[in-house]
């Protein structure tokens, strides 16, 4: 690589505007040239120090976490409790739901102030009342006819 290109990259590097690809290019270029001036040698020293720092590894091992038996036991108990509550709720819902309109006894009429839901009783009562009305009507008609006869005479 031309020394001129290296110097341009070095200037960009110190201005903090190099891309990752340019920094890789710069590192490789500096490694490939032996006779570097002081400034580029300083840069190479810096980059070598950074690379050396990158080789440091963590002595702290990663331990795969485990969920404790107590937590598992608590989770199971909680699951069973939730299921039991759900079943109990459904049971309560079925047994205490509001009776539907279809199932409630149908009120047909009142007889002497009392509710009557039996159709036979209601029909008998209706027959009795209508019979009474018919009798009264017949009596009334008979009286009207009698009055008409008296008037014509």
């Amino acid at each position: 690589m031309e020394l001129n290109r290296i110097k341009i990259l070095a200037d960009r590097y110190f201005d903090g505007i190099t891309s990752r690809a340019e920094e890789v290019e710069l590192r490789e270029a500096l490694r490939s040239i032996d006779n570097l001036d002081n400034e580029l040698r300083a840069l190479k020293t810096m980059l070598d120090a950074m690379d050396s720092l990158h080789e440091t590894t963590s002595p702290v091992k990663v331990v795969r976490p485990t969920i404790s038996r107590r937590t598992v036991w608590l989770a199971r108990v909680a699951s069973v409790a939730i299921a039991a509550c759900a079943i109990f709720g459904i049971f309560l819902g079925i047994n205490h739901r509001e009776p539907s309109i279809v199932e409630s006894p149908t009120i047909i009429c009142h007889i002497n102030g009392e509710l009557v839901s039996d159709q036979a009783i209601a029909r008998a009562e209706m027959d009795r009342v209508l019979g009474g009305v018919a009798d009264n009507m017949a009596l009334a008609m008979a009286k009207i006819e009698k009055l008409n006869l008296v008037r014509t005479e």
């Binding site: 201005d15 505007i17 810096m46």
Partner: peptide, 19 residues
């Protein structure tokens, strides 16, 4: 980028001084 530039230039000056 500004912090990076300052840091790099500062290190360079001290390395040059050391050299």
């Amino acid at each position: 980028r500004m912090n990076l530039s300052r840091a790099r230039k500062s290190v360079r000056e001290q390395v040059l001084s050391m050299m």
